[in-house]
Design a protein around this nucleic acid. Structure first.
Lengths: 228, 228
DNA sequence: CCCCTTTCTTGACTTAGGTCAAAGACGGGG
DNA sequence: CCCCGTCTTTGACCTAAGTCAAGAAAGGGG
């Protein structure tokens, strides 16, 4: 049974006594979702939460006219859909698998029973939720206080700080998705990218490769000191 | 000692064994803040969280140019500033007392000790954080997917559903603050209010009194079906 | 009751960024 | 290697909403 290894690898469950890992394997549901498949929709009843084992998932809202605002991307080891478990019954947004993904589902009631007996697990959950609140706070700040070039700069800086090795940044999502994450549309994003390239802030090195030429310039944009 | 009564009245601590209420009184710090006084600032180290006993508090972000985005208002019984307790060290936003307020402060370490022994308290905290995540999700949706008349309509509908008795809605905050909560500026809010009055959706009955004339019209605006 | 401060409204102007439309560039399957 | 669908870019246009500036109302303290 390899499931227990997957569970032990989930950050949320690190530092949990082994017997709880075993308890968790008894309640977990192992699922595969294909690219584009909806995992849950806004308003669905939330009977449990999910953890990405492999692949990637996006969480998003849609306006009546069809514009979509991405709230998060989640990759391996991250959990999502936990809000209704503690707050009430309904999911506040949609979840879609953006590539073939393996997802573990943890049913609500059984999970709460485990939590009731394990304060250290609940502290982990509290940490996860608090960190999520912080990222939302940043997203709200971006959306309401910065213009799009500022949000984009902040995102590029963020990428450059979390990348591994290479000189270029590799966008791991399509530009359309990035636009939605930044609260704008592909056309606008495209214009801003080429404007930034013209201003020698960045260099577009290929379809999904971006090189940062003027880090300070980006930082100034991100903090609102400069306009494009 | 009346402090324990205040603590017992905090929703977060409802359903907690009495002895924990007593433990809490030993760690709590009782504070008074005046109107306009800053409780903490973005980036401050978070050594604990706060609960409003009386008065009102706003949580907000400020752009480099000084525009402010209000994230929350909190009144009696509500807690705030809990993110750094579990997620890390720094407050992600500012907190200001908008009227004379009595605030209890709970230091981080002592509180975590109590949580470690009391799963039902941690479940309450998880519920509070989850509900907060949900309201942020709604705020993000509003800010990025709706135009200002839509956000305002949503807020008026919300008020009308939570009001007590009277026919008119009473704005409990200034129009400037409301503008900031809606992610806009007072001029724009003012224009939209008079436009809504002209369109007979609402009636402005005095400085802070608004009467809803056409609930459906507001609902259509809030859901994006109609434009103003 | 009146002054002074703060808040609110209104107007003229500017602009970021969204919409619509069409052309170009990728990229995987046959 | 070529075709077709999907992503991306570019252009012309439009509009929501922000800026600046000047009055008008409210509201609290003396």
């Amino acid at each position: 049974m390899r499931m227990i290894n997957h569970i032990a690898a989930i950050p949320l469950f690190q530092g949990l006594p082994k017997e709880y890992h075993e308890d968790l394997t008894t309640i977990v549901v192992d699922q595969i979702f294909r690219r584009g498949q909806i995992i849950f929709s806004e308003g669905d009843e939330g009977n449990g939460f999910y953890v990405v084992i492999s692949g990637r998932v996006k969480i998003f809202k849609v306006s009546p006219e069809g514009k979509e605002q991405i709230l998060h991307f989640f990759g391996p080891g991250e959990l999502f859909g936990e809000v209704p478990v503690f707050a009430g019954e309904h999911f506040p947004a949609h979840a879609e698998s953006i590539e073939e993904s393996r997802i573990f589902f943890f049913p609500r009631d059984a999970f709460i029973d485990i939590i009731r007996e394990n304060p250290s697990l609940s502290l982990s959950m509290l940490a996860v939720l608090s960190r999520r609140l912080r990222t939302f706070t940043m997203l709200i700040e971006d959306l309401s206080l910065k213009e799009v070039p500022g949000r984009l700069s902040a995102y590029l800086i963020y990428l450059s700080e979390h990348k591994d090795g290479t000189d270029d940044l590799i966008l791991d999502i399509s530009k359309g998705q990035l636009a939605s994450l930044l609260g704008t549309i592909p056309e606008t994003l495209s214009r801003i990218l080429s404007r930034m390239a013209r201003e020698k802030l960045i260099c577009l090195d290929g379809p999904r490769r971006i090189q940062i030429l003027d880090r300070n310039g980006l930082l100034e944009l991100a903090s609102g000191e400069r306009r494009l």
